[in-house]
């Protein structure tokens, strides 16, 4: 850990200006990821701008949906009556992640920004293009059991570790951000990016932009939903594969479907093809199996994560089975 300045900010514009002025300044919210990275020497900030005093904790119904303040804690969101009533998939996904203590500290904005858990990213004594561009990808020919199946590049095969992000992708959340010059909205599926030649960039947020809220549009996916997380121990482990599945059923008829996977790509991985296939079909194991097969098209595994080619479609099938049998 290097010495750094620490400032508390009481207004979003002031916080943003601090980052405009100092290229090595970072926003500090719950700190559950950032502080670890600083301790490991992965990040060496010159200033931390504490934004916890900003009035961004609210969770409120808005016209056509729900607005979640960027500083709402993960546990506040997962326990909120409106979330439980209208977006139970999100509550399930959040509760599948981390531990109660961490969920009490971690914020929604921070969780969206969570860095990869790739072991090579975390260890400064090993190569990583994401941490140190040009140093090489340690995982490509290394221990890549946790790594990507989709959208990876020769530069980086890391995955996004967040459970919450998988649900937010499926729920077509919209991220509201404030910048030094303008405010803008980013569709959740456009928020995170694939590594390409620049794995150091996790997402499309500008460095000086601040997440203000996450809006969830109203939908009818509040009954037949399931977040399935397959991991190496029952709690407090990152996903080998996770699946957010939501169905809008009329009897057995699939009127709408949302599917996203975690643990398979540099971003939460929306399964558009499988969703389209399910539309109008009759809910059932064969149909789910076919959807899972479609979802896996284009998957590419590495030495240690071959099993994901089997586990991922199985997990999709199981998530759909569970979602459809509910309610």
């Amino acid at each position: 850990m290097n010495p750094f300045q620490y400032t508390r900010s009481s207004a979003a514009s002031g916080a943003i200006q601090s980052l405009v002025k100092e290229p090595q300044a970072h926003f500090l919210a719950g700190g559950t990821n950032l502080i670890d990275l600083i301790k490991m020497g992965v990040l060496r900030p010159e200033r931390l701008v504490d934004i916890n005093a900003l009035p961004l904790r609210g969770i409120e119904a808005i016209a056509g949906g729900l607005r979640i303040g960027a500083l709402a804690s993960n546990s506040e969101v997962a326990d909120h009556p409106l979330v439980l009533q209208d977006y139970p998939l999100l509550a399930q996904a959040i509760n599948a992640g981390a531990s109660p203590q961490l969920r009490n500290m971690a914020t929604v904005g921070g969780n969206i920004m969570q860095r990869t858990r790739c072991n090579y990213f975390f260890d400064t004594a090993m190569p990583c293009n994401k941490r140190s561009p040009g140093s090489g990808c340690g995982a490509l020919d290394g221990y890549n059991r946790m790594h990507a199946l989709f959208g990876a590049s020769e530069k980086c095969i890391a995955v996004n570790p967040s459970d919450m992000n998988v649900a937010l992708t499926a729920l077509e959340a919209v991220v509201h951000v404030k910048g030094p010059k303008r405010d803008r909205k980013i569709a959740f599926s456009d928020f995170h990016r694939l590594p390409g030649d620049h794995p150091e960039k996790d997402n499309t947020l500008e460095r000086t932009e601040l997440i203000i809220s996450v809006d969830l549009p109203a939908n009818s996916f509040n009954r037949h939903v399931h977040y399935l997380k397959v991991r190496d121990r029952t709690s407090f482990a990152f996903a080998l594969i996770s699946v957010a599945a939501a169905l809008d059923l009329e009897g057995d008829k699939i009127k709408g479907a949302r599917l996203a996977m975690g643990g398979v790509a540099h971003k939460p991985w929306r399964l558009h093809g499988a969703e389209a296939f399910l539309l109008g079909k009759t809910s059932g194991e064969d149909v789910f199996r076919q959807a899972a097969r479609i979802a896996m098209q284009g998957a590419k595994a590495y030495k240690y994560n071959q099993f994901k080619l089997t586990l991922a479609p199985n997990a999709i099938l199981q998530a759909l089975k569970t979602a459809s049998s509910l309610g």
Binding site: R117, N119, Y120, F122, D123, A125, M126, G138, D141, G142, Y143, F236, A237, F238
Partner: peptide, 14 residues
């Protein structure tokens, strides 16, 4: 990781 002779999961998360 035998290329570096280092543990890749030397922490309580991994």
């Amino acid at each position: 990781d035998d290329r570096f002779g280092r543990y890749v999961n030397g922490n309580l998360a991994d």
